[in-house]
């Protein structure tokens, strides 16, 4: 009987402290949940600190490690995330880690690295979208169009959007700088007008015509032995040649604006769920 009483007291004394003791909110499991909460509420700075604490004190599972890498990316602490991928074997990693690597490289605009990974046969979700997206971001319109025609079925919204940009960007008519320059040689200002800068074209025509006329009158009145005539002539020639250069530049500017529009649209689609 006494032995039973002793056993009961022993068990009682062992159990009581555990009943009263509270859950330690700093333990690994709780900290992990807390870090996830911080991440999900977009408090990435705080989430990073908590994940790093977890990394030091506890064993991180894949989910938590991935979230830590994502917080590095979101906080633009790219070096820390890069280090992880440099030390690991990318091909052996799960799809989610491969995808995170791709996003990390894309966020740093290291498109060449992503291209290399694709060329080396790395398989990851949204491979088609990234392959096509990089071609568009690097202004390789023909290549982008070619990639977009490689796959007949584009199920995702992203893929559909990018394919449409690839087709539109490939088919849009760009201005030819050499043609704009040539047009400016024949009719000053027409190169700018051809590049859709009608106002600039008209002003250029006026300026070149007036300086030309000015030079003509000067030579007519003072002849070739007067410096005044040559100054006026020099001014006219410099306007005329600058206008040729301006025509070519206008065509380039038109093309750049067009290209930028496609690049922005690509970025909007490709990075929408980063």
């Amino acid at each position: 009987m006494i032995r039973h009483i002793n056993t009961f007291i022993f068990i009682f004394l062992m159990v009581i402290p555990n009943l009263f003791a509270q859950d330690d909110i700093y333990d690994c499991e709780n900290s992990k949940q807390f870090a996830n909460y911080l991440f999900n509420t977009n408090q990435f700075n705080l989430a990073q600190h908590e994940f790093e604490r977890l990394d030091f004190f506890c064993d991180l599972n894949d989910n938590t490690r991935l979230l830590l890498l994502k917080t590095y990316r979101k906080n633009q602490h790219f070096n820390q995330a890069n280090q992880f991928f440099q030390t690991g074997n990318l091909k052996a990693m799960s799809d989610r880690f491969k995808m995170e690597y791709i996003r990390l490289m894309m966020s740093q605009q290291l498109y060449g690295e992503v291209k290399k990974a694709i060329d080396e046969g790395l398989n990851f979700p949204e491979k088609f979208e990234h392959h096509l997206g990089i071609a568009l971001l690097q202004k390789e319109w023909e290549q982008a169009y070619f990639i977009s025609t490689q796959q007949n079925t584009h199920n995702g919204i992203k893929a559909k959007g990018l394919v449409s940009i690839a087709s539109e960007s490939y088919n849009s008519k760009r201005k030819k700088p050499w043609l704009a320059a040539l047009m400016s040689v024949v009719i000053p200002g027409s190169g700018k007008a051809y590049s859709s800068y009608w106002g600039d074209g008209f002003v250029s025509l006026l300026f070149t015509a007036s300086t030309g006329f000015f030079a003509y009158r000067a030579f007519n009145k003072y002849g070739t032995n007067n410096a005044y005539s040559w100054i006026a002539g020099g001014l006219a020639v410099s306007y005329y040649s600058a206008n040729i250069y301006g025509g070519a530049k206008a065509a380039q500017r038109y093309n750049e604006n067009l290209n930028h529009r496609y690049i922005h649209e690509t970025e909007d689609i490709l990075f929408s769920d980063y």
């Binding site: 004394l13 062992m14 402290p17 909110i25």
Partner: peptide, 18 residues
């Protein structure tokens, strides 16, 4: 018994932060 009582007291005192 002494050991168990001390253990109980310390356990109650050294609780996790709430």
């Amino acid at each position: 018994y002494c050991f168990l009582i001390i253990s109980l007291l310390t356990n109650t005192l050294i609780n996790g932060q709430n």
